[in-house]
Nucleic acid binder design. Sequence first.
DNA 1: TACTAGTTGATAATTATTATTATATAGGAA
DNA 2: TTCCTATATAATAATAATTATCAACTAGTA
Lengths: 152, 152
Amino acid sequence: MVQVQTLTYNQVKERLAEYKLKATQQRIVIYDALMQLHNHPKAETIYDFVKSKNPSISLATVYKTLDTFVVANLAAKVMSSNGTARYDGYMDHHSHLYCTKTEEIMDFEDEQLSKLIQNYFKNKKIKNFKISDIRLQINGEKLNTKENITIN
Amino acid sequence: MVQVQTLTYNQVKERLAEYKLKATQQRIVIYDALMQLHNHPKAETIYDFVKSKNPSISLATVYKTLDTFVVANLAAKVMSSNGTARYDGYMDHHSHLYCTKTEEIMDFEDEQLSKLIQNYFKNKKIKNFKISDIRLQINGEKLNTKENITIN
DNA sequence: TACTAGTTGATAATTATTATTATATAGGAA
DNA sequence: TTCCTATATAATAATAATTATCAACTAGTA
């Protein structure tokens, strides 16, 4: 199960400062949105979400801010198969389940499996390539689209 | 190492017939391009490539044909992190190395690792989700961008 | 409190992809 | 072989997602 901690205004500010980012109202609101929406929202979804808190925010700002977060490693960008970018503020190493029926992207993490794979690549050397990150993309279909998925 | 067989005109025709697809000049030329370009080309790259053989072909036809191939399982669509679709005519199960520096996508297959992962998911049941396909996305950077990558 | 580099809002521009539609063609029937 | 019809294609318009531009604003600092 994924635990998402909610940060206070000041905690977000500190977090941004750590990454040498000015703590603008927009960034705080967007970061907060990322913490609250754990369904891998696309830029426009975040835009709609933050407008309630900052009605004058611009969609371009949302894009730019998300990009800034990705560069600073505060968020990750996941490409969905239809070509739109989805964002993820949950930065612990994890993989994704992708449902081709509903287009949902769900987090999947499994310590044991990660270890297994990491171990594997300790022996299997790839020359001239420095691995930064290994992710599983598990494609499939929800059987009942109304129901949730439960793991093990 | 990835082995790509080159098919004759008639072999491609047969292949298309198998999938109930009319063997049009355009489809044959595009399928051939996919067999020849194993660097996961995007639609426009394929378009440029096939124009020498069929100068009047339209970019829209390339897109439509690639989509047809994907539906028919003659090709796969891979999303690159910048949001453009890349196509792959090599359909054996395999994963990808993605170089964030050069944007190259390289095939990676490893029987042993696949077995490992498949096995893992035999025990680890995911309820309400039917896995169709598990892929690794191995991100990293080429150390020397001019040199190739060699595995093991 | 005032300055300045960096950020934002509004919107134009760009890029990748899909839709539209008149014309052309592959494959089967006669 | 020739004809017929369902499909496919070319050309191009339309759309969707994202990025660029730039004048106005603001956070952090002096």
